[in-house]
């Protein structure tokens, strides 16, 4: 029996969040005695596979028809591999990649699934998982029926896995192209290039809310402070809706969940849906003209004032 970790990658490296999924898998395996295997899917995976093998044995599904992460084909591969390797659990980092594909794979396997897991424990040998519900207002303890179990974990809630002393073996999965579904045609991905760290992986996140009325203004304040702190930029749904910031910067219940060392909220009221995405940050700073803004109730440090005045002052102080 194995625990299969579906690793997300960018064509060269496994994404750091997958390492947390691996850490969880290793710990579960220590209880169950199962072996841990990584699964990478894509095209031209030699480099990714070598990188991933530093952490665990890797099953490599490499085929031109898998060049793009379409749910139909990737779920098909995951389900096939899970059956062949007798996977007792399938684990992945909770990103839109996994959220799109794993529920489909789990239905194909008639498997129980829990998403966004932030903790777990064993009661009489049975695995209990903890996951947030109601925009993070509640923490649920859940039990899953049957096997395999499909679990996505929040990378921010778990440590990253250490590499192995000796690289793991690489197992080539022979992809049978004739059985691959052909349900969707991938047209392309449009993303905003950035030199800043990835939002979910950054040590510091600076986020902006409604007071920023244009993309330029957002850059001038939120972007410049993020750069001064070597951080990533985030935003509220309000800015995504208004087309001021791209969707991939949204923090919250329906966006990304972050837990950096430092989260700076500039002109963000603190709606529960936003708090769901950042309240586990270690240190939270809120800057807001409204002293009653709910953001202050989750902040470590609060500064009442206008972001347009405070941000340049902060950048100056940081330079001292």
């Amino acid at each position: 029996m194995s625990i299969l970790v579906v690793a997300e990658h960018d064509g060269a490296h496994a994404r750091p969040g997958s390492s947390s999924a691996l850490a969880v898998a290793r710990d579960l395996a220590a209880h169950s005695g199962e072996r841990v295997e990584l699964l990478v899917i894509g095209r031209g995976l030699a480099f990714v596979a070598a990188d991933a093998a530093r952490f665990a044995p890797v099953i490599v599904a490499d085929h031109p028809l898998l060049a793009n992460p379409t749910a139909d084909r990737y779920a098909h591969i995951i389900a096939d591999v899970a059956k062949a390797r007798e996977a007792g659990s399938i684990v992945a980092n909770s990103t839109t990649f996994a959220k799109d594909i794993l529920p489909r794979a789990s239905a194909m396997l008639s498997a129980a699934m829990a998403g966004d897991v932030t903790g777990y424990s064993f009661a009489n040998g049975k695995l209990l998982l903890r996951r947030p519900m109601y925009a993070g207002a509640a923490m649920a303890t859940v039990a899953l029926t049957g096997r395999p179990l499909v679990i996505t974990v929040r990378a921010s809630a778990f440590p990253a896995a250490e590499p192995l002393a000796e690289p793991g073996e690489r197992i080539v999965w022979s992809v049978d192209a004739s059985t691959l579904p052909n349900h969707s045609e991938y047209v392309g991905l449009e993303s905003r290039p950035t030199l800043r760290p990835e939002l979910t992986e950054a040590r510091v996140v600076v986020s902006g809310g409604r007071p920023f009325r244009t993309g330029e203004e957002f850059e001038k304040y939120v972007g410049c402070l993020a750069d001064a702190l070597n951080g990533a930029t985030g935003c509220t749904r309000a800015l995504v809706d208004a087309g001021i910031a791209p969707n991939e910067w949204q923090v919250g219940q329906t966006g990304k969940v972050v837990a950096p060392q430092l989260y700076v909220a500039l002109g963000i009221s603190g709606a529960v849906q936003h708090l769901a995405g950042m309240k586990n940050s270690r240190v939270v700073v809120a800057v807001n003209t409204d002293p009653e803004a709910p953001m202050f109730s989750v902040a470590t440090y609060g500064l009442v004032g206008d972001v347009r005045q405070i941000v340049p002052e902060l950048i100056r102080e940081l330079g001292k």
Binding site: T70, T95, T96, F97, D100, S184, E185, Y186, V187, G188, L189, E190, S191, R192, T200, P246, N247, E248, K256
Partner: peptide, 10 residues
């Protein structure tokens, strides 16, 4: 809407 940007599929 994905973590990495806006993807288009048919």
């Amino acid at each position: 809407e994905t973590d990495r940007g806006l993807e288009t599929v048919i």
